[in-house]
């Protein structure tokens, strides 16, 4: 029983970290229809800044600078590169592939700087843990749960109650009508990218913090696991991102916890289980759990 609780709590904490990354995907997708492959390297960029700056600025200062800088970088990426392209039909897919190019360049430079090092971020939690009845969980993961819950609620509120969110939703429904109604699409979009960039830097903290030993050149690859989380949820829904991330986190933790009973699937299945779950869900619901099927336009 303790074992199961342990797995569930571990999965929940892992899912909370995925949710921060998946939320970035969702914000970007909703604003621009782009699946950002550069998210992993943006995350690494934010983490790297914290690692370099925390000695001089303290953790909080470094975090603030990193969130701001990553937000600016993401916004610049959208404004200076993506929006420069041909805005015609299919533009979102072209821009998706542009983000692959951006990812390659950014990741190469960051890997070159990080090399084989493990960089500590100087976060305040250290290796402290909290006991919850019979099980324990790392403080950094509790913080991740809180931060991702707050982030998701804020993004949800931003979408729902602000002018920006209204514009964003209007653009999501019908680009041309929104433009006619005076929505300044390009600014709405760029702001969304900035938000996603900030979230990426925030996610970097929890990916490099305690249960992990520090920031590595491969830390950004976690984005690959947040893909299925975002798609499972339906790509355009913050609540979906949360649900998808928790599902992926729980799947991973449970499969890893019961590896010996699941030996039929091959050992190490935990790492690919998220993808298997995603394909199964897509077979039943081709646009994810919370996605709605877009009406085909003739």
């Amino acid at each position: 029983m303790t074992g199961l609780l342990d797995d569930l709590l571990g999965g929940l904490a892992l899912g909370a970290v995925y949710a921060l990354v998946a939320l970035g995907f969702v914000v970007i997708f909703k604003a621009s229809g782009v699946l950002s492959f550069a998210h992993g390297s943006l995350l690494l960029f934010g983490g790297y800044l914290i690692a370099v700056l925390h000695d001089d600025l303290g953790f909080a200062g470094a975090l603030a600078v990193a969130v701001l800088a990553t937000a600016l970088l993401a916004g610049a990426l959208d404004r200076l590169l993506l929006q420069r392209g041909d805005p015609g039909p299919g533009a979102a897919h072209v821009q998706t592939i542009v983000t692959i190019g951006v990812d390659i360049v950014l990741l190469t430079e960051l890997s070159r700087r990080i090399g084989g090092d493990l960089l500590p971020l100087g976060d305040p939690w250290g290796d402290a843990v909290t006991g919850l009845g019979p099980v324990t969980v790392a403080d950094s993961r509790l913080a991740a749960i809180v931060v991702s819950a707050v982030s998701i609620a804020s993004v949800f509120a931003l979408f729902r109650y602000t002018r920006w969110g209204l514009s964003l939703r209007a653009a999501g429904e019908d680009v041309e009508a929104a433009a006619l109604m005076g929505v300044r699409l390009s600014r709405v979009r760029t702001l969304a990218w900035c938000l996603a960039g900030g979230l990426a830097a925030l996610a970097a903290v929890f990916l490099a913090a305690f249960p992990a030993p520090g920031l590595e050149r491969t830390t950004g690859q976690i984005a690959l696991k947040a893909f299925p989380a975002a798609v499972l949820g339906g790509m355009a829904s913050p609540v979906g991102a949360l649900a998808g991330s928790l599902l992926i986190g729980l799947t991973e933790a449970l499969v890893a916890g019961h590896q010996s009973e699941l030996s039929l699937l091959g050992e190490g299945f935990a790492d690919v289980a998220p993808y298997a779950v995603m394909v199964l869900v897509l077979l039943v619901r081709p646009t994810g759990l919370f996605g709605t099927r877009g009406a085909a336009r003739v």
Partner: peptide, 10 residues
Amino acid sequence: APVRPEEHTP
């Protein structure tokens, strides 16, 4: 057009 026009999911 590289790929089919986007069908946005709102």
